[in-house]
Design a protein around this nucleic acid. Sequence first.
RNA 1: GCGCCCGUAGCCCAGUUGGAUAGAGCGUUUGGCUACGAACCAAAAGGUCGGGGGUUCGAAUCCCUCCGGGCGCACCA
Length: 573
Amino acid sequence: MLKDFFLNEVEEAILKAIKDNKLGQASEYTKGSLMIEKPKNPDFGDFAVNVSSLARTAKIAPPMIANAIVEYLSAKDYSVSIVGGFINFKIENALLANAVEEILTKKENYGKPDKIEKEKILLEYVSANPTGPFHIGHGRWAAMGSALANLLKFYGHEVYQEFYINDAGSQIQKLGNSLKIRVRQELGENVDFPADEVERKNFYPGDYLIPVAKKYVEQNPGITSDKLDVKVLSDFAKKEMEECQKKLLEGFRVHFDNFYSELDLHNSGKVEESYKELMAKGMLYEKDGAMWFKSSEFGDDQDRVIKKADGSNTYLTADIAYHVDKLKRGFDRLINIWGADHHGYVARVKASLEALGYDPNKLEILLGQLVNLVINGEEVRMGKRKNMVTLDDLIEEVGVDATRYWMEMRNIDMTLDFDIELAKRSTDENPVFYVQYAHARVCSILRNAVNDRINPETGEQIKAPMTQKELDDLIHNFDKNIILKTADTAKTLILKLEEFKSVISLSAQNRTVYTICRYVQELAAEFHSFYNSNRVICDDVDLMKSRLALMVAIRITLKNALDILAVSAPEKM
RNA sequence: GCGCCCGUAGCCCAGUUGGAUAGAGCGUUUGGCUACGAACCAAAAGGUCGGGGGUUCGAAUCCCUCCGGGCGCACCA
């Protein structure tokens, strides 16, 4: 990419200059310590590098250093100017034509780096209890996680997506008890959940179990209240909830490779196994009748109970076994997306891996801030179960594209206010439509280039400027001289297209999805701006061809980016 | 009290890991469709980067401190 190209140019020049003793007292330079940036003011140039940081070791003023380095630059296909400690580069059209050519050649692979250190990554996200429908917060992890998976795959990693089902523990009992009440209601009994706040917490009083109860009664004709078995009911409800969650995820374009059951983990003996291993390594001790893990020896603020006084395991015990199992399955890297409310668990899970002799740095935990639902400008508290807005409702109301985009467009470190009204609106306030509109518009131009049209006023037929075959030829047998025709007017647009490669690299390395959203909005803006001041289909045939090639490049890049976000790229809207 | 996240234009957010005059979008004001989609474009106004110290050639960015908001601090999951 062009950034790397200029960085390489500068670094080569520096090394030569040092060899010739032209950089004062600087005797060495480590590659990668300088950075190519885009000048704030485009008059300076298209790319720039600030060499001021070399001033200290060289003991020369920054402008002098810049001058010395410039002496060694090839200046082929670009020109150079110096302002203070900045070396500014202005690129020539040949480089722009190369950029477009690259897009047309690589197509759906455009944006992928040539070579990376490929890793086998296990990405775990959502991982909810199978005790009810997803709420709006799960939607953020679902959208971000799946987009991150797409991004890392696109970047070149091998990504395995996993959902950890929290199907063991007291909440399943609670689910069974709740369904029992719903089934008894279905059988005509006059029962309800306890009115007392505290007792009510032992149940899930949401309406969503009513249809499950109906289904259970249908499938078990003749069942009576006295024959209801909580264990059977829990299993039934659990299965129903899991099905319901899986269906929703598919519709939300979230595809897991595996659903990993916590219950299976317990039954497999792996939990007991890692417990014994910790014991064998002397990492456990007994206090107040419980077994404690010495996590504070590995950076946690305190030790943690790993087996309760009643002999049962804590959640952490299973989580340790789960993460050990992930590593045993041969992954180079584990990435988890967790809600910020779980941040206290980071230290203890990492501690356990270290205690068992694994590298805790293989586990990356991305903590995401929570989501607030905003209706009519007012924050709606999520805590109250009865007013819960489910993810299902939200998608139904807002649509998959807009819901995903709004979840993806914010930095994970930010609390997200999800404004339903705003997300629904298909106006300027909604960036997802702005981007999709750009794609549709490009497609429209490409259609017009090959379709006959009718003049709405005179009614006469206007012949298409070219055939589909001519358009295909233009793309497949790309002539670099053609694109040079439009390089001047489309310079910022082409540079933006070229930037996609940097955006992918940075986003993948930093595990950020919102940067893709920002990019795609910027690219759409560049296109719309270009569109308003330049006609693509015009009388100058070479110019038209040149701009059509550019349109195809835009369509490819927009599509590649939107595919990562799993937001559709419509040809018409 | 302790830990993590956040505080940048009226609103919502960027800010390329310490660099050039702090930037987009929305909203406001003003212009632009008898040729490719106006769900668009162009322009203007709008800032004590929460406050105060410090580090250095240089700070929205790093350190300290205070203020404000969110989330955690279980032998729950």
